[in-house]
């Protein structure tokens, strides 16, 4: 295999990895907020279910969750798994898993906002939704940026777990080429890629944090 072929293959894997990363964030960040509401709900049933969900998703291996999400339609519903579902299952599993982590981050952020902020808003006549969107959420976002950044960095590395479903992302391809060519080079390239991807993630998040440093 020529170096160019190898790099081209790794390039497609890179794109796949990047797309898993962004799609996971796109869906898990809002879904996590929803779960955090469930977790803080006054309704005992909603709260209980959310709590159980979060605890299971955080308490079992992501790799196992990937496999379960992929095979569940077949083993539970008896549906033949269509080929397009491979990528869908990868995203779905990542989203379901990361939403649980984000839910706990949101919750701690929301609970850290002083009650006085809610009371001031209430006396000024803000509605519940207005209070949350205008007063609470912006402050929550500022507070949770550091833990969210940590999760994002973990996510970059976790995308490699998609190899269990032989999704053709960076790690899967690097491993395949390495085996076929008996060379460690593809794995080195993959490592360098993950490293720089994470440097970029950290840099962007640091920039966002600085942007939000206009107040305390």
């Amino acid at each position: 295999m020529s170096t160019t072929t190898m790099l081209r293959l790794l390039g497609t894997g890179m794109l796949k990895t990047v797309s898993i990363f962004f799609l996971t964030l796109l869906f898990s960040l809002p879904l996590g907020l929803l779960f955090s509401f469930g977790r803080m709900s006054k309704n005992g049933l909603v709260k209980g279910i959310s709590k159980l969900y979060i605890s299971v998703m955080r308490g079992t291996p992501l790799m196992l969750q990937l496999i379960v999400v992929y095979f569940a339609p077949y083993y539970i519903l008896g549906i033949k798994i269509p080929s397009w579902y491979r990528s869908g299952a990868v995203i779905l599993a990542f989203v379901l898993n990361y939403a649980a982590y984000f839910a706990e981050i949101y919750r701690s952020g929301i609970e850290s906002i002083p009650i006085g902020q809610y009371e001031a808003a209430r006396v000024l006549g803000y509605g519940k939704a207005q209070t949350f969107v205008k007063i609470i959420l912006p402050q929550v976002i500022k507070r949770i940026l550091p833990p969210v950044t940590n999760e994002m960095i973990t996510l970059v590395k976790d995308t490699s777990l998609a190899f269990v479903l032989t999704e053709v992302e960076m790690f899967t391809i690097a491993k395949q080429i390495a085996a076929k060519e008996a060379s460690i080079l593809p794995l080195m390239v993959a490592g360098v890629f993950y490293y720089f991807f994470n440097l970029a993630v950290a840099a962007v998040m640091e920039w966002v944090e600085n942007r939000l440093n206009y107040y305390r």
């Binding site: 006085g116 902020q117 001031a120 006396v123 000024l124 006549g125 007063i135 500022k142 107040y215 305390r216």
Partner: peptide, 19 residues
């Protein structure tokens, strides 16, 4: 909602919106 427009409250620790 109408009643709330009748009064204002000043808190001991201000509770300004920091952002």
């Amino acid at each position: 909602k109408q009643v709330r427009r009748q009064f204002g409250l000043v808190f001991q620790n201000f509770n300004l919106f920091p952002h």
